[in-house]
Simulated assay, not measured.
Amino acid sequence: MTGTEGGGGPAVAGRWNDLRPRVVSAVVMIAVGAAEIWLGGPSFAVLVVLLTAGMIWELASITAPVQRNRPLLMAGLAAASLGAALLLRSDLAAAFLTVPAFALALTPRRDRRIAAAYAVAIMVAGYGLVEFRDEAGTTGILWLVIVVVTSDVAGYFAGRMIGGPKFWPAVSPKKTWSGTVAGWIGAVLVGLGFVLAGMGGWLLVLLSPVVALAGQLGDILESWMKRRAGVKDSSQLIPGHGGLLDRFDALIGATVLVMLLGLFFKDLPIG
């Protein structure tokens, strides 16, 4: 019996080579994330600052792969800038959030304007996660994360089981309309679940799919940037998963939208 016949052989086993590191990494990320969301305060803020700095490092690395030391300097700059913004919590904080973007734009790299714009999104998302945790509490952050995760999982399985027309073939050849709509439906169900549990108003049912769409666009943007850079993963920081941007791209898009909505609405229907 050859390796491609029956139920065994190296061909079949090869498909599951990364299963163990993926599961272990996922369990660790869920445990750490859940603990920090529950703790909140400075502990959660430190975690977000470190993750944000890591994502800026990845962005600097994939847009300027020949530069060895500058990505680390960018990460340090991002950590210092976000830390200052979180300490100030004033209008001046917005200026600090743009510092890494200017640094990326002023150094030699591929797609400097795109990199700078994405750096702003990363920094705003980092600031927004801490701000949203402080204002909406554990319930608000859980809703945001669950909407993003549910949309991603529903879209993944629907896209592969149903297939069909592509959502945005010029930018993301793999994303389908079936997966996109499934993500919206999953987000609606999450919003409905929070409402029925008494943890949000009915407007949350309409808001959840909009936030899911923002997350899907964040995922598409990150994938597009990686294709332009000619890389499969943003880094190898997370065994079996790739990099931080690969795991948090959708959360970046969703959080930025929530921050923008917060400029126009005093209170979101959550918590």
Rank of each mutant, 00 (worst) to 15 (best):
L204Y: 07
A105D: 10
I114R: 03
V27H: 08
A250P: 02
S151H: 06
V231E: 05
T255E: 07
R133Q: 15
V32K: 11
G9Q: 03
P173T: 15
M1R: 06
A93Q: 01
G14S: 14
V28E: 08
G9T: 02
E36C: 09
R112D: 13
I238K: 01
A94C: 06
V99W: 07
G215A: 07
F248R: 00
G179H: 04
V12G: 03
A116D: 06
N17T: 10
L59D: 06
L268K: 14
G198N: 10
G8M: 11
G126N: 04
L106H: 02
V231M: 09
W38T: 11
I122T: 00
L207R: 03
G230Q: 02
G76S: 10
L19V: 04
A31N: 08
S208T: 09
Y156L: 11
E222L: 05
V258P: 00
A35Q: 00
V27K: 06
P100E: 12
M29S: 15
A60Q: 02
W177K: 08
P108K: 06
G183A: 12
P71W: 01
E5C: 05
A94L: 13
L104E: 09
I114Y: 02
T139K: 02
A187F: 11
A116N: 07
R228H: 05
G54F: 05
V205Y: 07
G3Y: 12
L221I: 14
R68G: 13
V46G: 07
R133D: 06
T180K: 09
I37E: 11
H241T: 05
A187L: 13
